[in-house]
Simulated scan of single mutants.
Amino acid sequence: MVLKNALARVNFALRNGTLRSIVEQDIHRNITFAATLRHLDTKFGELLRKRTPIIASTKVKCLGEESLNRPVVSEFRERVKERFRPHPSSRIIILLPCSARKPYSMSRSHIMFRNAIRKAGSSIFSMLSELIVTSPLSLVPRELENIHPARFYDIPVAGSWSEKEIEITSNLLSNVLSRYQEDSIIINHLHGSGYEDIIERVREKSSVEVIDTSYKAPPTSHQSLQELSEALVNTKERFSLNQTEKVISNTKKIQAIADFQYGPETGKRIFHGKIKLKGRYPRSPQIFRDDKHIATMHASTGYLSLFPAYTEEISKISLNKLDFGADYVSGSNIYAPGCLKADTHILPEDEIFVLYENDVIATARALVSGEDMNKMTSGKVAEIKKKKR
C-alpha cells in the first residue's frame, strides 16, 4: 500500500509537472535523497535543462539552495543572460527587491514603488528600466515578470542569502548591466546584508554610477520612498528628451518577451510601429500592429503565439526553427522522418517555426527538445498550431 501510494504520488506529479517540487521536498527528510539529487544536478544538469519546458503554468515551489540548480530556474537565468536586451531608451536602472505576491507589480510594496516613481513625472517611464533582484531566479526584468517561471515561483523568505546565491546573482546582474549604455545610472533601492553584498560585487565590476536610496531604512519606509522620488527627479534632469526615445511600456514588454522566447533582437524586428493590446486577464490579450492582428499573449503562461504570416520577419534570426522536408504539412502532427534539422535551443512546449527552403509553412508546439529531434528516426516531434495559408 505504501509503494502504491508513492507511485500514485509520482504519477500525479509527472502529469502536473511538479515532480521536481516533491523531490526537493523529500530531500529534506532523507540524506540519501539529498545526495542523489546533488549528484543528478552536477552530472546531468545540462541534459535536464535542455529537456525541461519553460513554457508552463505550474507552480514552482522552491524550498532551499538546491532550487538554484532546478532546470527551469537555470534556463530562465541563462535566457536572461543571453537574450534580454534593454531598450535603447533605458538610461535609469532601478534595482528593486522581490515580493511574495506575483506578479510583483500587483504586490503592495511594488505599488508603493510605482507611486514613488510617478512623483518624478510621467516622462520618467520612457527612460526607466526596473530589475527585480531575487532568488533563485537571481534577476527578473520588469518586462518578464508575467511569464513562467517568474510569475509562478515561491520561496520561503528568511532574509539571508547564501554565498552561492550572492555569487550567481551578482554575476548575472553585472552581465545584464553591461548591456546598458555607458552613461546610464543605477538607483539601488535594495536593503539588507545579502543585497549589500551583491551590490558591492557589482560596484567592483562596473564603472556605472550607483545611487543608494534605501541604505538607512527598509525600501517601503517613507524615508526610502522619498529618497527614491528625489533621486529620480535629480537623475532625470541629466538626460534631455532628445536623448531618450519615448516608447510605450506595453511595447517594451512584448519585445522583451519575444526576445526571451524566440531569440535576441526578434522583438523589435516584429513588434514595431503602433502596437496595441486588446483584452484583459483572465482572457488572453490579442496583439495588433498597425491595426493588424499578429499575435496572442497567453494569460495562462505569459508567452506569445505568432501568426505564421508574420513569422517570416524573424525566422532567419530566431532560435526555434525546424527545417522540414516538404512544402506542406499534412495532418496535425510532425514526425521525425520529415525533419531535416532543428535548432538545439528548442525545448519541449516551445512554439517553433516549421520551414521549407527558408519559408515558414506553419507554427507548431514542440513535444521534444531540438537535440532529440535531430536524433530521432521515428515518432512524433511536434503538433501543428497554425498553417500558413
Rank of each mutant, 00 (worst) to 15 (best):
T58C: 15
G159R: 06
L172A: 02
A56D: 15
S105P: 05
K59T: 12
S126N: 14
R85P: 06
K119P: 10
S126D: 13
I111V: 11
V157L: 09
G121Y: 05
P136C: 12
S89N: 05
S99W: 05
A116M: 09
C62S: 10
V133S: 12
M127G: 05
I155P: 00
G121T: 10
E145M: 04
L95T: 04
V133P: 00
Y153G: 05
V72C: 01
S174C: 13
I55R: 01
A150I: 03
H87R: 03
Q181H: 12
I147Y: 00
A56T: 15
V80C: 07
R79T: 07
I117E: 05
L173D: 00
R142S: 11
F125L: 08
L139C: 09
N146V: 15
S67M: 09
R179L: 06
L96P: 14
K164L: 14
R108P: 02
N171S: 07
K81A: 03
R79D: 12
N69I: 02
P156G: 01
S135T: 15
R83V: 03
R114D: 15
V157Q: 14
E82H: 08
L177S: 04
A150R: 02
K81R: 08
S105N: 10
I94P: 04
H148T: 01
N175R: 10
S170T: 07
L96S: 09
L68S: 04
P53S: 05
I117N: 00
E163M: 13
S138L: 09
T134R: 11
E143D: 01
K59W: 11
D154N: 10
E66G: 11
F152W: 13
C62L: 07
Y153D: 03
S105M: 08
E163G: 10
R118K: 09
